[in-house]
Simulated scan of single mutants.
Amino acid sequence: MIFDMGALPPQDRYKIMTATIVPRPIAWITTLSRNGVVNAAPFSFFNMMGNDPPTVAIGIMPKAGLLKDTAANILETGEFVVNLVAEADASAMNLTCIDAPPEVDELALAELEGAASRFVAPPRIRTARVAFECQALTSLVTGPLQTIVIGRVLCAHVEDRFVLDAERCHIDTVALELVARMHGGGAYLRSSDLFHLERPS
């Protein structure tokens, strides 16, 4: 079957794309408003885009016809932290999905503790096993307030117990127990079911 995306309403396009572009890693983004309010929210329209410079991209959809707090804060300050989500943090992450007003600190709401970042003002989430401090390189408005943010990773925090060999930058990926987003309806995926293929030469 062919779905003509131009002829479909936005919600149906969303259903088709989110049901087939899976699994999607989750960027649990922390930002800081100009007024000093911490915002935390998860986004599954996210991935690594390159390593020289180290680059990530996040797609942020609007909320009720307005920029989401995350997008507004990044566009104002140019700084954000991408925290990756382990299964142990899944419930807290889900709580930060709430449509809260801009003055609400979602970390406090979810009873999470922030940790000071080294290069940017927004805090990391202390329980996140991996966090990337980022500076916005550019942003692109692709639709009515639908925004893609490209960020440069300034530094990566990886909890010591998951670093197998610091000199060789080897990380115990499976032990991180990161979760990914699947289709709609609150479906998530564990990262423990693996198979390997040798890359041909």
Rank of each mutant, 00 (worst) to 15 (best):
H157I: 04
R168P: 11
E133W: 01
C134H: 01
R152C: 09
A64F: 08
G59Q: 06
P102N: 06
I150H: 06
E111R: 13
M17P: 01
A156Q: 07
P101C: 10
V158S: 12
T55K: 02
N39H: 05
L154E: 08
T18V: 15
L140P: 05
F80W: 00
F43V: 02
H157R: 11
I74F: 03
A175N: 00
A166P: 01
P200N: 09
Y14D: 06
A187R: 12
V158I: 15
R190N: 15
S117V: 02
A108C: 08
C155I: 02
G185W: 12
L197E: 11
C155V: 01
L8T: 02
I74M: 03
A166W: 09
A187T: 14
F162R: 07
F43L: 03
S33C: 14
L178T: 08
L197M: 15
E79S: 00
I29D: 04
R190G: 15
A27V: 00
P200M: 08
A19P: 00
A156M: 09
A115F: 02
P144C: 14
D89H: 07
D69E: 13
L84W: 04
A108P: 02
C134T: 02
F80C: 01
L32D: 05
K15S: 13
E79V: 00
A7F: 05
D172T: 10
D105Y: 13
M49E: 04
V38L: 03
L164V: 15
E111S: 15
R126E: 15
A116T: 12
A180E: 02
G78Y: 00
D52T: 10
P23H: 02
N51D: 11
C169K: 12
E177H: 14
V174E: 10
I98A: 15
P200V: 06
F43W: 04
V179R: 01
M1L: 11
L66E: 13
F45Y: 05
E177N: 15
M48I: 14
P123F: 04
D160Q: 04
C97N: 09
R199F: 03
L32I: 14
Q146C: 10
H170E: 14
M49S: 04
M1G: 04
P101S: 06
P9M: 05
L140T: 07
N83V: 03
S139P: 03
V141G: 07
G184E: 13
V120Y: 00
V81Q: 04
P25S: 11
G78T: 01
T55M: 07
Q135W: 01
P144I: 10
I16C: 06
D99A: 15
I150L: 14
N39M: 03
A71K: 05
C155D: 05
D89Y: 05
L112P: 00
S191P: 13
R168D: 15
I16Y: 13
E106R: 11
L140Q: 11
Q146E: 09
A180W: 02
A7K: 13
R129N: 10
R118V: 13
M1S: 08
I171T: 09
L95T: 10
A108I: 06
L137G: 03
S192V: 10
N47E: 07
P23N: 07
G114Q: 08
G185L: 06
L145H: 08
V22A: 12
R161G: 08
A128P: 06
A71V: 09
N73V: 12
N47V: 03
T142H: 11
P42K: 04
I2L: 14
A187L: 14
E159Y: 00
T20Q: 10
L140V: 11
P53N: 10
